[in-house]
Design a protein around this nucleic acid. Sequence first.
DNA 1: CATGAATGAGGTTTCATTCAT
DNA 2: GATGAATGAAACCTCATTCAT
Lengths: 199, 199, 199, 199
Amino acid sequence: MSPRRDVRVERTAQIIEAATRLFAQHGIDQTSMDMLAKAVGMSKGVLYWYFESKDAIILALLEQLFNQPLLEVQALLQAPESTAHRLSQLTTNLAAALEELQSLVPLAQELYALSARNNNVQSFLASYFQRYRASLAELIQQGLERGEFSSIDPEQVAWHLAALYEGSTVLWLLEPMPQRLTEQLQAALQLLLKAIVAR
Amino acid sequence: MSPRRDVRVERTAQIIEAATRLFAQHGIDQTSMDMLAKAVGMSKGVLYWYFESKDAIILALLEQLFNQPLLEVQALLQAPESTAHRLSQLTTNLAAALEELQSLVPLAQELYALSARNNNVQSFLASYFQRYRASLAELIQQGLERGEFSSIDPEQVAWHLAALYEGSTVLWLLEPMPQRLTEQLQAALQLLLKAIVAR
Amino acid sequence: MSPRRDVRVERTAQIIEAATRLFAQHGIDQTSMDMLAKAVGMSKGVLYWYFESKDAIILALLEQLFNQPLLEVQALLQAPESTAHRLSQLTTNLAAALEELQSLVPLAQELYALSARNNNVQSFLASYFQRYRASLAELIQQGLERGEFSSIDPEQVAWHLAALYEGSTVLWLLEPMPQRLTEQLQAALQLLLKAIVAR
Amino acid sequence: MSPRRDVRVERTAQIIEAATRLFAQHGIDQTSMDMLAKAVGMSKGVLYWYFESKDAIILALLEQLFNQPLLEVQALLQAPESTAHRLSQLTTNLAAALEELQSLVPLAQELYALSARNNNVQSFLASYFQRYRASLAELIQQGLERGEFSSIDPEQVAWHLAALYEGSTVLWLLEPMPQRLTEQLQAALQLLLKAIVAR
DNA sequence: CATGAATGAGGTTTCATTCAT
DNA sequence: GATGAATGAAACCTCATTCAT
């Protein structure tokens, strides 16, 4: 209601945005609050006005970072195209996102590693992956119901897809193959479809 | 027989072993050289007698850690069983290893993240994955030559498998599903085999 | 008037002052940042708030330390007395300064030694000595123009004087001769003057 | 008598030689016993077999380093040439030595600085300079007795010369003027001679 | 005589966080 | 609301010296 609230929202966003950039570039531990303050053009004290701690910033960033892919799958659930086509679209989108946001991949890996020691991170990510797989399963389920796919376990295939996507991110991080990612991922998807489409 | 046993090999192993344990438990950055020294039961200086820096320890650990899975695939190349069977065996072994060495998974993730900022780590891991995929491709190629598989690109399938394996460790790290990992992975493999076996 | 006095200038001065004292007493390398912090009565972190590194402190100290003698010669350039008299005054001042600031002599020597390995120190000192000799040369030149001195090369005599001054600090450091320094230096100057005054 | 003695002498010399080189290049404090051991191709323990401590090495080096110039002046005392000529020779030799042993200059400065905190170094250097000045004074005295110089205090002139020499070393360290040192020093000497030669 | 493994105090520097202004 | 000065623990690493072999 008060204009103050706008300032808060804006500032918070600025901080998260800068943190994402710096964490991705230098690593979380190697990014100091000083660096972050300088990057957002505010004083160090301000960071603590908007966030309780560095951990709180990490958590906020986490939520923002992992929101997008989830929304994307969920949007596809409403799309009219065939399931196979929608899965293909999802794959293309993933490849495009990886290529565009290359620098975020190590940040994601770091957050995965962090999850082993930080309960907040752990439960956020666990919940994220559950929802992601659930949405994928729903998509597969649609394919089953429409007769596109035959006798398979949607949850199992969803797990398979999710693993494939996560794994390809790792491979991509360690062996960036310019332009070949889409190709590779699409080939993988086709193989999977070949196994599940109703004959 | 020699009056002074070669203490070098022994100490190096002790240090790597302790480092692996501590890094996995607390994270690499959160494990100080002091902690490590205490864990090995020696003075801090000794770490620097055997390793040039913390980085050198990380690197040595890296090599040891990633040696095992590589050897395993390469061993399977010589095994007499059918290719499908050998792939299944590989999958079972992976699941078993993940369950046994749970605590090493976050360490691996952290190393992946580190690769973005540490050239030594990056090139080691890049080389590792290349060799791993190459061995997998060779295995698939054997399947093709023996007529077990039909018209597929071995390198592509190898990439698919590698991605699947990497992705499943991530999913496993974030959602440990007691006892269900083998099941899930085997199901995924069967799906893949269904798509590639010669009819 | 302003509610928060500019503490920056004050702190910087305190730190330099303490550093000068401790470096002179214990040597630069033997003075730890801990000792320095304790001497300034602040935490160690504060040193790094005001200076980037120990090197930066050394450099700031260097500038302050060598500023004084330079100003002194330059002031003499404006003085009305005869050149011989002004050189005598300079000599007396030098002797007095040496006796008063005895403890700074080893610090100066250490900085000279440091110049061989530290480019910042090297270029500062090189520039200092150039300016010092140039000012001395200007003074001699005045003597020439006023007919006090006869056919000599001002730059050469300036170099001679500078060497004499530097050398006498070394001799003084190693054989402190209470009260005899002024005498000795004046005698040396008179010898020099005897050689250059117009007959 | 025993051949062992030769080994000792040889080893000691090797160590001092390497220490001189390393101390000159990296500074005394920045040269570790490890570096020294590596440079002489011996184990670290050997250094402690031949020298009690790092300080003892510094002291032995000091004696060797400052022996040469002293011998040189003393040799000149016996030479048949005119005193003026012999002083000129001394000056030329100094310039040549400085140019040849450039790297030893910072080491000398560091030892001067060290003298303020190390009594052994202090008394060695004090004694050295006393003997050096005494020899110079004897040379001047010869000039007086032979009627070359007129009514001057030999000790005072010796101090003047010693200061000039030391000072020129400092100026040379900070502003290396290729090829011009001899010139500059000879000019300075001529000025001095002009003031003291009997007319 | 000689080695090289071991010690452990101490070096410089970083950094999340607090708080007076 | 906002600043930036201040803290102090802890990080990695070095090094003179000792001593069992």
